[in-house]
Amino acid sequence: MNETAPIRRTSALPESGDLHSDGVGATASDATAADGAYNFAFLDEQTKRMIRRALLKAVAIPGYQVPFASREMPMPYGWGTGGVQVTAAIIGPEDILKVIDQGADDTTNAVSIRQFFVRTTGVETTTETGDATIIQTRHRVPEQPLQEDQILVYQVPIPEPLRFLEPRETETRTMHALRDYGLMHVKLYEDIAKHGHIATTYAYPVLVNGHYVMDPSPTPKFDNPKMHEMAALQLFGAGREKRIYAIPPHTKVKSLDFEDHPFEVQRWSSCCALCGATDSFLDEIVTDDRGGRMFVCSDTHYCETRRAAGHVGLAAAQGAEP
C-alpha cells in the first residue's frame, strides 16, 4: 500500500486536444512533445505498442509482410503514412532524423514529413546521412553506406511484389505460404523473351534470406545491391495496405534473375554535372526546350559532400559556383 513512486497504467491513453472545451484543442500530455496537443510522435501508446509488436515479428521473419492495424494519419494515404507510423513507433528524443524523397532532403513531401516529426517530437533533424540515427526515405537508398546503429525506414505504396501479377490478397498470401513464385519468374522470363532483358527498372523484386520474395518499394534497381547485407536495420511501412516488413542487418537480399541473364543495375554514359560522380544514381534535368539535358546526383547530400570536398562536375566547372 505504501507506494513511493507514482502508479500509472501502461495502457492509459494520453489526452489529446479536446475540441469542445476550448475550441482549438490543447491539453498537454505528460509526454514532452513539441506540440503539446498530441502525444509524443502523434500516435497514442496503444497504437505504438501494436506497431512495435508488428515490427518485432517483421524482423523475426525477414521479408514477410506482417499485417498491422494502420491508423488514419494526418497526411494522405500513399504519401508515406506507413513510413511515418513506423518512424513514430521507434523514434525517441535522442534520435537524429533525416527524411528524403527521391534522394533529396528538400523535396516538398520530405520537408512536410520532417516538419511533422519536428512538431510532434522536437527531435533534431539532419541532412547528413552519417549523422542520422533514423532515415525515412521514399524511393531511394542513400549512396553513402549506412552503419550498424542506423535504421532506414522505407515508405511503401504497394508492399505485395505479386500484386500486379495477381490482384487478390487471398491468392498472393497462399503463394507466399507455398513459396509459389512461378508467376514472378514467368513474368521476368517473358520480358527476356520479348525485350532481350528484364524490363523492370524500379520496385525490382528481391528474395530475402532465400525465402520470401519481397518488394523493395519503388526504389530504382540501382539501389537493390545496397540492401544486400546492409549493416543497418531496414524497416518498411505500407500504411494504406496495412503491412510492415523488415530486413535485419547483414541479411542476404538477392535480386531475382536467371543464370543466363544476371541482374544488373542501371549505368549512365554521363557523370554528375555538379560533382562529377560516376557511381551515383542520376536525375535528368531538362535545361531548355531544344533537347538540352544534364544529369545530377539524385542524392543531394552525397552530391553536396562531394562538392564540399572539391569534386567538380562539368556544369559546375563551366558556370558560377552553385
Partner: peptide, 20 residues
C-alpha cells in the same frame, strides 16, 4: 502494487529500441 515505468512514453520507447 509496484509502479510501472517512471515515464510511460519515453521508457516504453527506450525499452522498445532495446528489444528491436
Amino acid at each position: 502494487l509496484k509502479p510501472g515505468f517512471d515515464d510511460l512514453v519515453m521508457d516504453s520507447q527506450r525499452s522498445f529500441r532495446a528489444l528491436l
